[in-house]
Write a protein that binds this DNA or RNA. Sequence first.
DNA 1: TTATTTTTTGCAACAATATTGCATTTTCGT
DNA 2: ACGAAAATGCAATATTGTTGCAAAAAATAA
Lengths: 137, 137
Amino acid sequence: MDQLMDILKRNQLSVTEGRRKILELFLKSDGALAHADVEKKIDAGFDRVTVYRTLQTFVEKGIIHNIPTTDNSILYALCKDNCEAGHHHDNHVHFICDVCDKTICLEHVAIPEVKLPKGYQQRQADLVISGVCDDCR
Amino acid sequence: MDQLMDILKRNQLSVTEGRRKILELFLKSDGALAHADVEKKIDAGFDRVTVYRTLQTFVEKGIIHNIPTTDNSILYALCKDNCEAGHHHDNHVHFICDVCDKTICLEHVAIPEVKLPKGYQQRQADLVISGVCDDCR
DNA sequence: TTATTTTTTGCAACAATATTGCATTTTCGT
DNA sequence: ACGAAAATGCAATATTGTTGCAAAAAATAA
Ligand SMILES: [Mn+2]
Ligand SMILES: [Mn+2]
Ligand SMILES: [Zn+2]
Ligand SMILES: [Zn+2]
């Protein structure tokens, strides 16, 4: 069975054209994608609402994860770690290139532990680094 | 001279009621504020546009810095480090409490260095940790 | 396969958030 | 107090995100 179907089935999602197309887009794209990117890069004309709902579903199922940014955009990228529904455990650094503006998952760079002040309990950590990527030097 | 004026003068900003009120709000508030918070918490009825422009100005001058989040909101907090116009160098961890929903600058917790893959050049780093804060345990 | 149930989609309406140009007002330096 | 420069409010517009509901598609049962 092909990878795409596999992911959808494994997560008990009925396979529809929208989900196939959007998941395919993530599979073949290297960087992270914003909602707007998904809408643009998909040839088929899905409704905006469908895109919102699909992304949300994928996040809930642990198929994609989102990446915080300081501008007002949420970015999404494929989970390559074994994320389960409702519980992500991606633990890698994200890199945003100032030049090409791509956002890349650095799968092999783990977020270091930090010692928090007394009484603070950590659940999740996001480390986003910006600068110049390898391609743009 | 009082602290408020001092900050505005130092950054060559003409002192207006809007700027005074908004800066005052940041000075006396412990956590970070979203645009919406600023609008709500200010008694005087400034135009939304003025708030947008003021926040933007403050960020450019290095008076406040913004904090990335995974939901679609930009948070702002006072720079306590010596940030210059156009060049922030806050280097502290931000903590978002899942319970009280406050976002706190952990001024004394530095973001650790990470070793990036060959070719990547770092300019800035944002580390946002969420969990339960000291007050909410 | 066909019929039935469940889920997903598109549409429309709405809400919230953000940006821009321009006339008026306020602040600043003289 | 006066003139130049900067900030503000207003209105119009754009972008982004949410919700309810009927139609369409997919999954399941027969
Ligand atoms: Mn990632
Ligand atoms: Mn901070
Ligand atoms: Zn690049
Ligand atoms: Zn708390």
